[in-house]
Design a protein around this nucleic acid. Structure first.
Lengths: 342, 342
DNA sequence: TTGAAAGCGCTAACAT
DNA sequence: ATGTTAGCGCTTTCAA
């Protein structure tokens, strides 16, 4: 039976208000009273009951983080960053996995009672799309991550997909590559990482006057290593000539690396490879993988900050007091490694 | 302003008790009353306030998961498994990162007020040791994971480290390897994964009558890819002959793989490599990595089940009603891949 | 500077 | 079958 405010008050011979004042470091408490209360707290091992505090104040100090799955390295690293950022603000993170792009589950999540004891949500959808935009208009603070929905009713923290992909493609073009295969295309996608990164790729080609070749775009709905390897094998089997590969994420690129080496292709000699995400493990592949860090830490820190501000009401709800939904873009950085050395 | 039980009751012209009954699917509610209440709930968009429920019932439906860091693949995959297992029991998971083996932070965690709104904790320490055993005697349900503490006051779910390491070593011995280097030793460790796996290694050597060579044990306090690569380079530089490598975890083994290939060593031709953990990514390295799956899913499922049972009081607190602390061991499985093909 | 007391929204014992 | 009511532990006016 844990001690309550009342127990402490009784032991210290004061009212619970005084104890509360001490707990909250309220200024106007006589030093000796404070002493007495502190002693009682210690003696009883009193710890405030967060649930009760939450009920009273309407805050729990918990934020939700909904993402596809932690076993995808990108999301594991994102979760790590979010938890660290939240900790700095004394917030704790409750993680929900929505599965790899299951739209229904994502929508369900948004109104899950499981989120009730959460002050707000950082949401990274993969299945929902532009058409589901208005579903984001939920009755609690929500910060959107990712590239599936733009112009929605909530704050949105994302990366410079087009710019970063253009930079990645340029990097290959500058090294003399002209037939750059892309792994990870999503056919029929209206909006998403694949679409945006592909746009950056095409822009870079156009700038350089290099013709676009449909056959070099390899679809891969899932972005696991496995899919990267499979796509690569398909391209090799098709016999389409190419001298570089742009994996729309690192995992695909690492899978491609593997398939290329199996086939005896030298990297970067025969084929240069570049990825996207700046995963930790890209430093340790053989060869090490050139990649683009889309600013994961900055994204996490911004998302937590913006969410905390909305929760504290410092900026009001979007569209409520003029503090409309905002879009935040993190800075990216190209990390050169062996896989594209010239 | 979200609707409360009272609002629904008023709209449906019933008492809050009836609404509560409907919400909880209580049997004895007249069908038409139920209809009316359901309609009111829908109209008001009523969602039960979990915080209030938690305050009243003493349960929140949240369990804590404290682990070193999500950016270590093993823990990311473990968290994934735990979240899935929890979901099946309608529990939600709050994740705390303790950092890579920071004993103080781990101890602090155990009495963190942040855990207050949690019904129980699954705890995977890396820094705490046998001497800290009694610190696990906390006033809430706790399930211990890992190999740092045995015989503590709580339920403990772990893996067959010695057996699994013995099997891994045997696997190499059976393929004719005699000079098996081990990466990941923790000098001066009293108890832990390194100690136990090393014990299995030595047992297998002894069985096979192969002499133990101190020089083949390479320390690595951190178990990142980086450390595996460094250790491997050290061994190569030292010139100590060896024909196999046992990475005490997969990440170390993958780092070693990389360093060996840099040095032009053929795998498994010159040196066979085996890891430990059964990480997803071991399927995609070049060559693919032989490893031991220590039963991660089973560990997660068991931990959640045992914790849920303790929370529900079905088994009482350990040592409270005779249902003393129990130790659970998951089954392991050796997964043969290219890195040890003969 | 400190105390008394009214709830926050819900559950559950008790009453009808 | 449904209603009444007393708290769960805390924060927060309002008084003293």
């Amino acid at each position: 039976m844990p001690a309550t405010l009342h127990d402490v008050a009784a032991l210290a011979n004061v009212s619970i208000k005084t104890v509360s004042n001490v707990v909250h470091d309220y200024k106007h408490v006589r030093p000796d009273t404070r002493e007495r209360v502190l002693a009682a707290i210690k003696e009883l091992g009193y710890r405030p009951n967060i649930t009760a505090r939450g009920l009273r104040s309407g805050r729990t100090g918990v934020i939700g983080l909904a993402l596809p799955e932690l076993s995808l390295s990108y999301f594991a690293e994102l979760a790590d960053s979010v938890i660290r950022a939240a900790e700095k603000r004394s917030l704790v993170v409750l993680i929900e996995q929505t599965g790899g792009g299951d739209r229904e589950r994502e929508i369900e999540m948004l109104s899950s009672p499981r989120l009730q004891l959460t002050d707000g949500l950082i949401f990274s959808p993969l299945g929902m799309g532009m058409a589901d935009r208005e579903l984001l208009d939920v009755p609690y603070p929500l910060v959107l991550l990712g590239e599936r929905i733009f112009g929605g009713p909530t704050d949105h923290v994302t990366m410079r997909n087009v710019d970063a992909a253009r930079a990645a493609t340029r990097h290959l073009l500058e090294r003399g590559r002209r037939r750059i295969a892309v792994i990870g295309g999503h056919e029929g996608e209206d909006m998403g990482s694949a679409t945006l990164r592909l746009r950056g790729y095409r822009e870079a080609l156009a700038e350089a006057g290099v013709p676009f070749d449909e056959r070099l775009i390899l679809p891969a709905r899932e972005w696991h290593r496995h899919d990267g390897a499979r796509a690569m094998r398909d391209l090799l089997a098709a016999g389409t000539p190419f001298d570089a590969v742009f994996g729309l994420n690192d995992t695909l690129a690492l899978g491609a690396l593997r398939a290329l080496q199996e086939a005896g292709v030298r990297i970067p000699g025969d084929v240069a490879v570049i990825g996207f995400d700046g995963l930790d493990e890209t430093q340790y592949s053989l060869p090490t993988l050139t990649t683009v860090d889309p600013g994961r830490d900055e994204i996490a820190a911004t998302a937590v900050r913006v969410l905390a501000e909305r929760i504290e009401g410092r900026r009001g709800a979007p569209g409520n007091d003029g503090a409309g939904p905002r879009e935040y873009l993190a800075d990216f950085r190209l990390i050169e490694r062996e896989s594209t050395a010239s």
